[in-house]
Design a protein around this nucleic acid. Structure first.
Length: 419
DNA sequence: TCTGGGGTCCTAGGACCC
DNA sequence: TCTGGGGTCCTAGGACCC
C-alpha cells in the first residue's frame, strides 16, 4: 500500500511560509532568468495564468490583478523540502523521496489509512507550514491518481484513500488520460485518436495495442491502473548516470571569452556534483545555441569528447570543455545559452587508466586540491573559492530580480519579528 | 529587453563479434 | 535457384517525469 504525499503549489507555499501577506493572493514563482511561470497559487490558476507562461507576455495581466511574483529561490525550496521529508520520515520507515515536493510512503501493515493520512497532513503543516495532499492506493500510479483527486475535491480535506472508494471505475472515468502519471501530451493525443479518453478506458485497453504504441513502460502504467503493482518503492536513489549544467544568459552574448567563462562555470558546478557522488566522468559534452524565439540568424551546435582517463578534476574538465567550445563557436551570432553534460560516470575508486595516455597528472594531489576546494565552498558558501576561468563580473549571468531572502539558510537573511 | 533546468527509460538501427 | 544464426554494445531520437 502506497501513500503519495505531494506539497500543494510547492514553491509558492515556500514563499508563503515566511510572508503572510501572500495568503489568499495570486502568487507565482518564475523559472531561472525570470523567464516563465513555474508555480502558481490557486488564486493565480483561477486567473487563467498557465504553467510555463512567459513572464514578459503577462506583465499587463499581473499588474491588473496585482499578482505577486518571485524569482526562484532554490536555497529556500531545497531547505523546506528537507524539513518536509524529515517530518514524513517519522510516519514510516519506508519512504522514497521522489522529487523536491513529493514522497511515496509504504503503508504496508498500517490500518485506518485515511485517518493516518490526516494525521500526517496535520503534522507536516504544524511542523513546517507546508500544505500537502495525500493519495493512498495499492499501486504508485493509483496513488498518484488519488492524490490528484484529493487536491481538487475540497470535501476530501486533502486525503483520499482509494481502497475505501466503492465503484472505483466511475471515479476513474472522471480522470483524463493526460492526468495519469506516465501519460504525457503526445501519448494523450495518440490515445484520444483511438477513443481512449479517460483513465477507466485506459485501464481496460488492449495490452498488445498499448505495448505497441507506448512500449513496455505504458503497459506497466495500464497494469498499475488495474491495481497490480509493478513500480516498486525506491528507498535509496541510484547514482546518477549523467550530470548536466546549463543556463540561459541574462543578456545575449557574442564574445567567445564570455562563453568560455560560462562553460567553465557550469563545468565547475557539475564536477562538484560528480565528486559528491564519488564518480569520475569519461565523456564531456558541450553545446551552445542562439535564441530560437528571435527573428535573427540562428546557430546551435553540440560536440562531445572522450577524456583520456575518467576524471573528476575540475581544471582538466574545464580545459576540455573550453577546447570543445572553441571548435563549435561561430563568430557573429547572439548566443542565448551554453551547457555541458558529463556522462560515462564511473566510480572514482579503482579507475581504469588508459594504456596509451601519458599520466602526467598527480592523482593524489588532484584529489587533495578538489577536497580542499569542496570543503571551503561547503563551509563558507558556494563560490567562496572558484576557478578564475569562470570570470569575475559574469555579465552573462541569469536574471534573478525578484528573489526573496534565504530565510532559513543565511544568517544575514533570517526573518525578523517586530514587537 | 524579455520564453527554465535537470533528469530517466526504451527502442531501433548500425556497428561489431564468433 | 540457392548466401545462417546468435549475440553485444553504442547512439540518436522520442517519450516521459518534476
Amino acid at each position: 500500500m502506497f501513500a503519495l504525499v505531494d506539497c500543494n503549489n510547492f514553491y509558492v507555499s515556500c514563499e508563503r511560509v515566511f510572508n503572510a501577506s501572500l495568503d489568499m493572493q495570486p502568487v507565482v514563482v518564475l523559472s531561472n532568468n525570470d523567464g516563465c511561470v513555474i508555480a502558481r497559487s490557486n488564486e493565480a490558476k483561477a486567473l487563467g495564468i498557465k504553467m510555463g507562461a512567459p513572464f514578459f507576455l503577462n506583465r499587463e495581466l499581473f499588474k491588473k490583478h496585482v499578482v505577486r511574483f518571485f524569482s526562484s529561490n532554490y536555497s529556500l525550496y531545497g531547505d523546506m523540502s528537507c524539513r518536509v521529508m524529515n517530518t514524513l520520515q517519522q510516519f514510516t520507515p519506508d519512504l522514497e523521496i521522489y522529487s523536491i515536493d513529493e514522497a511515496f510512503l509504504s503503508l504496508n501493515g498500517f490500518t485506518d489509512l485515511a485517518h493516518y493520512g490526516q494525521v500526517i497532513r496535520a503534522t507536516v503543516k504544524q511542523h513546517t507550514g507546508m500544505p500537502v495532499s495525500i493519495g493512498i492506493a495499492p499501486t504508485k500510479t493509483l496513488a498518484k491518481v488519488a492524490n490528484k483527486i484529493a487536491k481538487k475535491d475540497a470535501a476530501l480535506q486533502g486525503v483520499l484513500d482509494l481502497t475505501t472508494v466503492e465503484g472505483i471505475d466511475s471515479l476513474l472515468e472522471t480522470v483524463a488520460v493526460a492526468d495519469i502519471w506516465g501519460v504525457g501530451y503526445r501519448y494523450a493525443a495518440m490515445l484520444q485518436r483511438h477513443g481512449i479518453i479517460n483513465a477507466c478506458q485506459l485501464k481496460n485497453a488492449d495490452d498488445a495495442f498499448i505495448q505497441k504504441h507506448m512500449t513496455i513502460v505504458g503497459l506497466r502504467t495500464v497494469h498499475e491502473l488495474r491495481g497490480e503493482s509493478f513500480i516498486e518503492l525506491e528507498q535509496s536513489p541510484p547514482p546518477k548516470k549523467a550530470i548536466g549544467s546549463s543556463r540561459s544568459f541574462g543578456v545575449p552574448v557574442e564574445d567567445i571569452e564570455e562563453l568560455l567563462e560560462s562553460v567553465s562555470d557550469y563545468v565547475s558546478r557539475a564536477a562538484e556534483k560528480l565528486r559528491r557522488q564519488n564518480c569520475a566522468a569519461s565523456t564531456l559534452q558541450v553545446y551552445l545555441t542562439t535564441n530560437r524565439f528571435k527573428d535573427e540568424p540562428q546557430y546551435a551546435n553540440c560536440i562531445s569528447c572522450t577524456l583520456p582517463t575518467p576524471t573528476a578534476y575540475t581544471p582538466e574538465l574545464i580545459a576540455c570543455a573550453q577546447a570543445c567550445l572553441r571548435k563549435i563557436y561561430r563568430k557573429g551570432y547572439r548566443y542565448k545559452k551554453t551547457g555541458i553534460l558529463l556522462t560515462g560516470l564511473t566510480p572514482a575508486n579503482g579507475l581504469q587508466l588508459n594504456l596509451f595516455a601519458e599520466h602526467r597528472g598527480n592523482f593524489s594531489n588532484q584529489k587533495a586540491i578538489m577536497r580542499a576546494v569542496d570543503a571551503l565552498n561547503e563551509r563558507y558558501g558556494r563560490n567562496t573559492v572558484q576557478f578564475a576561468s569562470s570570470g569575475i563580473n559574469k555579465r552573462w549571468k541569469m536574471l534573478q530580480s525578484y528573489k526573496s531572502p534565504c530565510f532559513t539558510t543565511r544568517w544575514s537573511e533570517l526573518p525578523t519579528v517586530k514587537a
